[in-house]
């Protein structure tokens, strides 16, 4: 069976859930092989083994980690040309999509981004995407070169499947051209203690209706062990960081439960959340377009509705 490469998403060897999802998808269409860039492969190895990686190509070198995107594309291109995998799966975050983009050009291959499903089709690997703000579902395939596919988080339920995950160190010389954009400083984000938006099963988001006070939104989120998101209006007003923005120009999420509080539901926001499994909204305006999408809606003030719901959730745990 042909290899399917998976670029590992991790922080110093702590593997993100998306990697288990990608390995699971890779196993559907071939033999999963992990590509690990940066420090911490020994910490990641057991997790990669548990989710079915047969081998792990690992490279930890300042020439790869000290420059933006291009060196990782060079590394992958070198491995693709040598091992001819049936496909390359890459996490569809901004850096991942850019690595995929450069890899496609380097290997003269087709590129599909933001896949929400990957299956083995008659003519090779087939993907599913959700487009035009979630209003259409598209299936597609790559017709030239090696299919390069950027896959969104939560696209598969991770399936454990023990494999050897044999670590194979790689040492590729990165060209000067690949070292064009130097990372001179990196400030890690301060952890909020809440789940990451891309991985969360439940997300509670606040918008203009919070008037800048996210206390009720955060308290409700914490009662549900949820991540906290924000609309573009709330981010533009400076009330919440851009990394929490849900929408077309922020993150596109599809959790099990999405709670929109004080968010009207403009297309910009809907593009980021309308593929969520269950949607709930609280808004003072009964005409707010968000109510067109909801499984359950409360027309009311989030500052009275959310605290009451929070108390009920907390009471149910007792």
């Amino acid at each position: 069976m042909a290899d399917v490469f998976v670029l590992v998403d991790h922080a110093n060897g702590v593997v993100r859930k998306t990697t288990a999802e990608l390995l699971t998808l890779a196993a559907r269409v071939g033999n999963p092989v992990a590509i690990f860039v940066g420090p911490g492969v020994e910490k990641a190895q057991p997790v990669l083994a548990r989710f079915g990686a047969t081998r792990v190509f690992a490279m930890d070198n300042a020439d790869v980690t000290g420059y933006l995107v291009a060196p990782q594309a060079e590394l992958l291109a070198g491995l693709v040309k040598k091992f001819r995998p049936a496909a390359v799966l890459i996490p569809a975050n901004p850096a991942g999509k850019e690595i995929a983009a450069r890899l496609a050009i380097k290997t003269d291959s087709g590129l599909i981004t933001d896949a929400v499903d990957v299956v083995a089709g008659d003519g090779g690997v087939e993907t599913t995407q959700s487009v035009f703000a979630g209003s259409y579902t598209v299936t597609a395939r790559v017709t030239k070169g090696t299919p390069i596919i950027a896959v969104k988080p939560n696209s598969a339920a991770p399936v454990e499947s023990a494999a050897a995950a044999q670590v194979v160190p790689v040492n590729l010389t990165i060209t000067e051209g690949g070292k064009g954009a130097k990372i001179t400083e990196s400030s890690p984000r301060v952890a909020s203690g809440r789940p990451e938006l891309n991985e969360a099963a439940i997300i509670v988001s606040g918008g203009r209706g919070t008037a800048g006070d996210f206390g009720a939104v955060e308290a409700f989120a914490d009662s549900l062990s949820a991540a906290v998101g924000a609309s573009r209006a709330a981010v533009d007003a400076g009330w919440y960081p851009h990394t929490a923005q849900i929408g077309q120009t922020g993150k596109q999420v599809s959790p099990q439960l999405y709670v929109a509080a004080g968010i009207s539901g403009a297309i910009q926001h809907r593009a980021g959340m309308q593929t969520s499994k269950t949607i709930v909204a609280v808004n003072k305006d009964p005409e707010a377009p968000i109510f067109e999408l909801v499984d359950f809606g409360v027309v009311g003030d989030l500052f009275s509705v959310l605290p009451q719901a929070t108390a009920q959730v907390e009471a149910s745990k007792a």
Binding site: G297, V298, V305, A309
Partner: peptide, 12 residues
Amino acid sequence: QGEIVTDEGDGG
């Protein structure tokens, strides 16, 4: 569209 209720003190 699912159920929409108006808060009358019991919305939460």
